Simulated assay, not measured.
Amino acid sequence: MGHRLVGILLNAAMHRGVPRLKTGQESLANYEEAATAYGLTPCFLKLGDIDTDSGLSSAYIKSEKGYERTLIATPAIIHNRAIYTEDSPGLARLLQHGPLLFNACNRYGKDEIHSLLEQHAGLRAYLPATAKGSAGLRSMMAAYDDLILKPCRGSVGQGVMRLVRRTPRHWSWSYRSPSRGRWITLPVDPENLPRVLRSRLAAVPYLVQERIQLAEIGGRPFDLRVTVQRGWGGEWQLTGLFAKLAAPGGFVSNIARGGEAISSSFALEKVFSGAEAARIRMSVGALSLRIASALEQSLPGLADIGLDIGIAGDGRLYFIECNGRDQRYGFQKAGLTEAWKDSYRRPMGYARYLLESGVKT
């Protein structure tokens, strides 16, 4: 296979860091190694440097002197690693006039994903009870004693809150205070919810969900992050999974909120027997592939996602959320180096497959 260019689309801030090798959690070395394995040369772009009229782009390509800006013919295949929504004008222009871009839109509302999965009868049993907004909160408080409130468009655990019934007439409300940098828990009257809580619900759309009693290690709940990607051949493949363990005293497992990444086998075998832990791992993998296949029917170009799957104390599985731009560094933090590298190899294999086959996403 001759070497051909493959584009990696980054946001502007990360793109600026390429020549200094300061790209946050994205590993340039992993991209280089993965692309080389498939006879590709990665070039790192930002949206503003792609000229759809001329077919030319300015991109960073590695040379003997390091990464240098080079004027190139825009690559035929680009993997999107920047955050864009469906209404992005620049993205729409690129999709209409430019190259083949996979994982183009990668910011989906939690309510949108839940609604799409709810249309598949075989997946409904894995979805927590869910409602939306202030009206949904009232109905959920009448039906459940423990609730999680999530911004529909939030990420890395930002804006997540919890409501727990303590007595028939009193609840506790937990939220993270940006000014204090820690979690605050306050008693609340269900008939007179705090103004700050009502303001949050009015400011942005919120999803209200039954809180699943997740399996715990030492009182710390955990869920599993499952990376599912298309690779060579175009089919969905399970790249790997790790456990996200909430910080002591916390209920949010996000690594960016103090959670810890550990081996999924280690976490599951702390709670379940070896045979049951193995069965759960296999079931989680199978469920994740089913979810990816269901979502691709409504989300064109989907090719690289991270799914959060919760495991209740009795071993039941629940879909928690879908991450359109999977943060792969959790594998590295969990000591799963090969899975971390595989999370870069699979998209490069898919890019080569698209180049060879001429398949349209």
Rank of each mutant, 00 (worst) to 15 (best):
R165A: 03
R153M: 13
W173L: 02
G157W: 07
G157L: 08
D146K: 08
G136P: 07
A203I: 11
C152E: 12
L197W: 06
A135S: 13
I184D: 07
R165C: 02
S179M: 14
A135F: 06
S174T: 13
S177H: 05
E191F: 07
R200Q: 14
S139M: 08
S177T: 05
Y206V: 10
R138Y: 07
P190A: 04
A143R: 06
L137K: 01
R153V: 06
G181D: 06
R166E: 14
L197C: 11
I148D: 00
P190E: 02
S199P: 03
L163S: 03
H170E: 15
P178Q: 13
V156F: 09
G136I: 02
R182T: 08
W171G: 00
P151I: 08
A143W: 00
L186T: 15
D145R: 11
R153A: 12
L186W: 07
H170T: 14
L193G: 00
V188Q: 01
L147K: 01
R153Q: 12
G154H: 05
Y206Q: 10
E191H: 12
Y175L: 07
G154Q: 05
P190Q: 04
L207E: 06
P168S: 01
M161I: 06
G157V: 10
R182C: 10
S177E: 05
L197V: 10
G181A: 09
L197N: 06
R176F: 14
R169K: 09
R180A: 14
A143H: 03
R138T: 14
L193Q: 02
W173F: 08
V164L: 15
R195V: 11
R169P: 00
S139W: 01
D146H: 12
G136K: 05
I148P: 00
W171Y: 11
D146M: 05
W173P: 00
A142C: 10
M140E: 02
V204C: 09
R166I: 10
G136Y: 02
V188N: 01
W171H: 05
G159R: 06
G157S: 10
A143K: 03
V188L: 05
L186K: 15
V196M: 13
W171F: 06
I184N: 08
A135R: 14
S139H: 07
Y206I: 08
P168D: 00
S199Q: 15
M140G: 04
C152K: 15
P151Q: 11
R176V: 09
M141C: 03
N192W: 00
R200N: 15
V156R: 13
R180H: 09
A203K: 14
W171A: 00
A143C: 04
V156S: 12
L207N: 04
R182Y: 03
V196F: 08
V196A: 13
